[in-house]
Design a binder for these strands. Structure first.
Lengths: 191, 191
DNA sequence: GTCTATACGAAGATAGAC
DNA sequence: GTCTATCTTCGTATAGAC
């Protein structure tokens, strides 16, 4: 009973996340999202009374937590392997989309509407970045790193991965990602 | 004689670069750019017959070459110092703008209009990223690194810096940048 | 709750007066 | 060459029929 709503809502969030990852925040319109989610425009404002803002926040959290879950899973086998997997997720996305799909969290972090300040959506991105950093940092600490080194490496991995995604999109090539991954894995074996 | 045009054109390019850095590609409208550059909307299409595309490409190249010139200057004193300066440029921009202004090249690399493919603007971003990587790589090679290591580190520095900028914007804090910079400088002393 | 129709502003771009 | 007026499309959002 009443599973239509939940399904529609979920489909909207997922569609929004996909659009954010490929086109960015300002190019992700509620109109087009509704169309792709096969739902009328008006329904969006029934499910998300706060409008686009709310959709974007939920899309960022949705995508971010999916990556976090994958991190949880793979970090159990050790920090280095977990990081390899974290990078592997993005590698596959880049390759399969022919370098068109990037990271929705990064997209939100880079843009900012002309009028508003987008405090809510930026905060969502910050929470997800922090989530990833904390998981990576905890795994490193569990293997003997001290707090400063662990948080330094965790932030470097997230920042470098996000930057590498952008470089690959621009150059339409996986090469930047390969080089960054090589450097990060080398660094990890030295710790 | 006829310096008005050159001045106006230049002012438009600079204004566009500023808007890209703060608001991103799709939020940078020709309308608002003209307004901020104190020039009528129609003039844009006189100076840039190919429209927004052309403005954005020139803005990306303009901003990218300014950073490259600074790199040229500081890399003369050594790779480590040059990289420190490269990072320092972004650090100042982040702090002085209260984490609102980022990198226009990154903005273009992350977004993509809904209809077009934005091949030209992406290519401009790719050229600038490559330019930075080559300058950093050359400096490292001049100090004895082999090609693979040098290009790996150069790409890592660019990717990590761009990613760190995004993290700082999201978290409204310089901390991510500090951690990334610390890791990169540590890595450099090991080479 | 689902969906159509519409309000209203802003986008890219152009025509054409000056 | 500079600038105004305007075309068309698309943006967010809402009203209100069903």
């Amino acid at each position: 009973m009443k599973f239509h709503q939940a399904d529609t809502r979920q489909r909207m969030v997922k569609t929004a996340a996909e659009m954010l990852a490929q086109h960015g925040l300002n190019a992700t319109s509620i109109r087009e999202m509704s169309k792709r989610a096969k739902s009328p425009l008006g329904s969006t404002y029934h499910h998300f009374p706060d409008g686009k803002q709310q959709v974007v926040v939920e899309a960022v959290v949705f995508a971010g937590e999916k990556v976090a879950a994958s991190l949880d899973h793979h970090l159990r086998k050790g920090a280095a392997l977990g990081i390899r997997e974290f990078l592997g997720v993005w590698r596959v996305i880049l390759l399969e989309s022919n370098f068109r799909i990037g990271c929705p969290v990064l997209a939100v972090a880079v843009e900012e509407p002309l009028d508003e300040v987008a405090e809510n959506t930026l905060k969502a991105a910050a929470i997800i970045f922090n989530l990833w950093e904390e998981k990576l940092g905890a795994a490193l600490i569990a293997e003997g790193s001290d707090l400063a080194a662990a948080s330094g490496i965790a932030t470097l991995v997230v920042a470098a991965a996000e930057g590498a995604i952008a470089l690959c999109r621009a150059q339409r090539s996986i090469d930047p990602f390969d080089r960054v991954e090589g450097q990060l894995l080398t660094l990890l074996t030295q710790v």
